[in-house]
């Protein structure tokens, strides 16, 4: 998983995860609440340059990741921009069906573009967090949060087992592929089904074995984990707070001016 890999290599990896999380969430919420082009572009620019210049993430990776929301944005843009009207002058392109005009509306297109920009801004904020902070750090935060302990623990275990099962699934797939399991549509379905079912059986047995092993090592309902040490540089807190305040003021003005 490319996001995890980039996070582990990031130069911002050792910064306080709580600070990074709050910073990303603050920008994200302001960006969504502002609903303005300028504020969205500002969030995208700030977050991606932090990821690339301060974090040292490869530009190629970032570009590739920014393409992930594209499917949704294209579909969403078309859906928002498409409209019907009695007056053809509201439309950029339209056709008359019956008594009304159907097509891409001017107001709708602006609304859709704004939504798309907001989406890029908010996704960039999320990428800042996920590309600079390894999951283990985030899970530590979850454990310290007021949420119930068992929820954090199950989340931790899910994270661990995702990789275990992923590896098992990959091996099964290779084996099936080598036996022409994916040569036609029919065999693909059969193979995918068999893979999932066997993965389930595998998971079940693994859970039993893991439990026995843990019990043998004194497991009494809680998994104790050590968390990494993080460097806590005061200037980072000051800069982050300053940036968030400046961004909030900027977003407020953008919203007022309607840009």
């Amino acid at each position: 998983m490319i996001i995890e890999k980039t996070a582990y290599m990031s130069k911002l990896r050792n910064a306080d995860p709580l600070l990074k999380t709050l910073f990303a969430l603050a920008f994200m919420i302001i960006c969504v609440a502002a609903d303005s082009f300028a504020a969205s572009f500002a969030a995208t620019a700030v977050m991606l340059s932090l990821v690339i210049f301060a974090g040292g993430a490869p530009v190629k990776t970032v570009v590739k990741l920014m393409k992930i929301p594209m499917f949704f944005i294209i579909a969403g843009t078309v859906a928002i921009a498409f409209t019907a009207s009695d007056i053809p002058s509201d439309m950029l392109i339209c056709a008359r069906i019956g008594a009304r005009f159907y097509g891409i509306g001017k107001a709708g297109l602006i609304m859709a573009a704004r939504a798309a920009a907001k989406c890029f801004g908010a996704v960039s904020c999320m990428y800042f967090l996920s590309l600079t902070t390894p999951m283990n750090d985030l899970l530590t935060l979850l454990r310290k949060s007021p949420l119930p302990a068992f929820f954090a623990e199950i989340t931790e275990l899910v994270y661990r087992y995702i990789f275990v099962l992923f590896e098992t699934a990959r091996k099964m797939r290779t084996a099936q592929d080598a036996r022409l399991g994916y040569s036609s549509l029919k065999t693909s379905y059969k193979s995918t089904g068999a893979l999932a079912a066997n993965l389930f059986i595998n998971a079940f047995e693994r859970a039993d074995r893991a439990y026995t092993a843990m019990e043998a090592r004194g497991y009494e309902g809680a998994v104790a984990v050590l968390s990494d040490e993080h460097e806590k540089k005061p200037y980072q807190y000051v800069l982050a707070a300053l940036a968030a305040v400046i961004y909030a003021a900027f977003a407020f003005l953008c919203r007022r001016w309607g840009i």
């Binding site: 275990l157 899910v158 998971a203 079940f204 693994r206 859970a207 439990y211 843990m214």
Partner: peptide
């Protein structure tokens, strides 16, 4: 607990 975690994964 472990079973639930594996189910999630």
């Amino acid at each position: 607990k472990i079973l639930l975690a594996l189910s999630g994964a």
